[in-house]
Amino acid sequence: MTQNSLIANEPNELNELRQDALQEIFNISMGQAADSLASLVNDRVHLSVPQMHWVEKSRVQDLKAAMKRVPKGAIICQPFFGYLKGEILVCYEQGTQYEVIGQSLAYSRVDTQRWQHELLLEITNILGGACLRGVAEQLNIRIDFGAPALIDRHNDVTAILLNPSSVWVKALMMEIGFSVQTMSMTSDILICMPEHYIDKLFSCIDLLLE
C-alpha cells in the first residue's frame, strides 16, 4: 500500500481531512445501504465500516496482507461510471446459502440452483448500487452502472487484480465487509477507482469541506 503516492503533492493535513471526510461519507452510505437492502430482502444485512487501501498494481500482495479477509469463490465485477469511474468486485464463497435470499427476490427453491449465477449478479447489482448511491447523493454527483458479469468461477480478488494484462496502475480500493444472515456468508465488496478519478473525488470532497 502506498498511502501517500497518489496524493503526494498535497499537504498531509489536507489529505487526512479528505480521507476522514471520505470515510464518513462511506460510513453514512453503508448505513443507508444496509437498511435498504434489509427491507428488500427481509433479512438482517450487515455492512462493515469501509477500509481504505491505496494500492499500486506492483504491490497488490500488500493489499492482500492488509485486507481483513481474502475470500475465494465466484467473482462478480460491475463497472460504474459517470462523474467517477471504477469497478465493484464481489467474491461469493462456495457454500453460501442462496435459498432464502433467492426467495426474497422471487426465485423459487428450484430456481435458486438453476439461476444461481443470475442471482449473484443481481445481488451484486443491488449491493453495489446501494453502497455507491449514498456516496453519489452526498457528493451531489451522478453515478451509473454497467451490467455485472461473472469474471471468474473460483479465485480471490487479489489474483484478479494481478492480471498482467489489466490496465490499471494505481487505485483506491474501498474494502467493505458484508454479511446477510440467511446466506450464511461473510464476504467483501471491493470498490476500486483508478488514480485519475481520485482527484475528481477529492475535488468533490474539497467542495464539501469548504
Binding site: 435498504s36 449465477h117 443470475e118 449478479l121 443481481e122 447489482n125 448500487g129 448511491r133 455485472p148 458479469a149
Partner: peptide, 13 residues
C-alpha cells in the same frame, strides 16, 4: 427502491 438499474443477461435469461 434504489433508483438504480437492474440487468439480465442472455446467458442466464
Amino acid at each position: 427502491m434504489f433508483h438504480n438499474t437492474s440487468f439480465t443477461s442472455w446467458q442466464y435469461r
